[in-house]
């Protein structure tokens, strides 16, 4: 059984030859949008022209579409935050927390940022975007999307991260926070399942 996979060879396929299958057509209304991702790679994508216009028409922009998601992965008992924070004076001071949340160590562009860049000082049960807009935790992807536009774009299409449910029906999106701890977002290594048994000598 070993023989087979060793023979495998991967070869490059241009996007063009994907069209070989004769299944794929590019929408004629699509416009090209170019941008650079964080690693500096040029990304070119097709976008309906209407979408492009919308991006620049800040006044008439429709409200962001929200996506159905499972409940945010809070530690049990921590939410609602207002149980404690209501009546507590928000402390805008960048500091080492000592009385609470001592397990939270920022390892996420930490030099440039503090808790209240993301959490809303006025209402701890919500998040706050740079624009000042207040959003619920069930839309935290928009918070992340402010700086990770390329990932957010792929996420909405179901490419980065993951959708669950039905391929031809209703879907739910896992939040970025289901896979990445917002405070220390590097994906944590996991334990692999056992390797296959080595082939015994075949019956023949």
């Amino acid at each position: 059984m070993k023989r087979i996979i060793i023979l495998l060879k991967l070869s490059v396929l241009g996007i063009v030859s994907a069209g070989l299958l004769g299944l794929l057509t590019v929408s004629s209304e699509a416009a090209r949008e170019k941008y650079f991702d964080r690693s500096g790679r040029l990304i070119v994508i097709d976008k309906p022209a209407a979408d492009l216009l919308r991006t620049y028409d800040t006044k008439n922009r429709p409200p962001e579409k929200s996506f159905p998601v499972p409940p945010p992965p809070f530690t049990e008992g921590i939410f609602p935050c207002s149980d404690c924070h209501e009546g507590m004076e928000p402390n805008l001071q960048r500091r080492t927390l000592e009385d609470m949340h001592t397990d939270i160590l920022l390892n996420h562009a930490e030099g440039q940022r503090w808790c209240l860049d993301c959490h809303n000082p006025e209402d701890r049960d919500t998040l706050r975007l740079v624009s000042g807009e207040v959003i619920p935790f069930s839309e935290s992807y928009r918070l992340c999307g402010q700086c990770h536009g390329d990932k957010y774009r792929d996420w909405r299409k179901g490419i980065h991260g993951k959708r669950t449910g039905f391929w031809n029906g209703d879907k739910e999106y896992l939040l970025c926070a289901h896979c990445h701890n917002p405070h220390d977002p590097r994906f944590k290594p996991i334990h692999p399942m056992p390797p296959p048994e080595r082939p015994a000598r075949g019956p023949h």
């Binding site: 060879k9 991967l10 490059v12 996007i15 030859s17 994907a18 994508i45 097709d46 299409k157």
Partner: peptide, 13 residues
């Protein structure tokens, strides 16, 4: 979406 927008490979094309 991924076929049209990502770098795609086929095994033993």
């Amino acid at each position: 979406y991924l076929i049209e927008n990502k770098r795609v490979f086929l095994l033993k094309e």
